[in-house]
């Protein structure tokens, strides 16, 4: 069975305006809409397309987080994942822990590929895929914007500072999805109904044998420094004069 594992993280929806709690202990999450991390949605979409092209047989969505992560995994199943696994924990998990959990699952699932989002839009770390590839001792292709599978290899185009880089990796490998890899499909109502019948296995960190000991203590959250609101100039001449006065043009 040619299997693809996809990581699904539950995060505050990207449209929510983030507010830091007054006591600095975190950001406000009460009554806030939660969603699949957008990059994970792209990762899942890519896995589904690879399967639809006949280059894989099964797509497994993996979540790590609180019980409510089932909601995001159900959405993943509605999008088309064949089954889902929730590794339950109420602890805040750091990227190395996520990587070790994925490695444990790799050992039982033997995937040809793991596709993750390039970063989560909450902690903005951009670490898990690279860490997983390291401890799995397999190739990584991060920030993917195009993936072609052929003969046990993946040819991946990556978004890099210089432009687009193409690399070839032997499978199995870890891929991370960038924005322009694809546009995730919309979930239709019948798919949501069907998703309710798909298997969603629930386990927890202790059962799979991974400790969530944090490496970094979070001391406090602060709101960012705000920029002062400037002035509205009346026309192009006034703008250029102001910039000239500051020596900017």
């Amino acid at each position: 069975m040619r299997r693809i594992l996809v990581g699904i993280k539950r995060v505050i929806d990207y449209n929510v305006r983030i507010r830091v709690r007054p006591d600095g202990s975190g950001v406000v999450t009460d009554g806030v809409k939660m969603s699949i991390n957008p990059f994970d949605e792209i990762a899942l979409e890519e896995a589904l397309r690879i399967k639809e092209r006949g280059d894989a047989d099964e797509v497994v969505a993996v979540g790590l987080g609180p019980d409510d992560t089932q909601q995001q995994l159900r959405t993943a199943l509605a999008m088309g994942a064949d089954r889902a696994i929730l590794v339950r924990t109420d602890l805040a998990v750091e990227p190395p822990v996520v990587a070790r959990v994925m490695l444990k699952l790799i050992q039982t699932e033997s995937p040809i590929m793991v596709i993750l989002g390039k970063q989560a839009i909450d902690d903005d770390c951009n670490q898990v895929g690279q860490m997983l590839a390291a401890i799995w001792n397999r190739p990584q292709a991060t920030c993917a914007s195009k993936v072609v599978i052929e003969g046990g290899k993946a040819r991946v185009t990556r978004e890099v500072d210089a432009g687009l880089e193409t690399i070839e990796v032997d499978l199995p490998a870890v891929l991370t999805a960038d924005l322009r890899l694809n546009e995730p499909r919309y979930v239709k109502l019948p798919d949501i109904m069907k998703a309710k019948k798909k298997p969603l296995d629930i386990t927890d960190l202790a059962t799979i044998g991974v400790e969530a000991t944090p490496r970094l203590k979070i001391l406090k959250y602060e709101p960012p420094q705000q920029r002062q609101k400037g002035v509205i100039v009346k026309d192009a001449a006034e703008l250029v004069a102001a910039l000239r006065q500051k020596g900017l043009v």
Binding site: I18, L216, K220
Partner: peptide
């Protein structure tokens, strides 16, 4: 920065 720069965290390693 976290949350697209909408919050800043101070972190400490052992």
């Amino acid at each position: 920065p976290v949350y697209a720069g909408n919050a800043i965290v101070t972190v400490e390693a052992a």
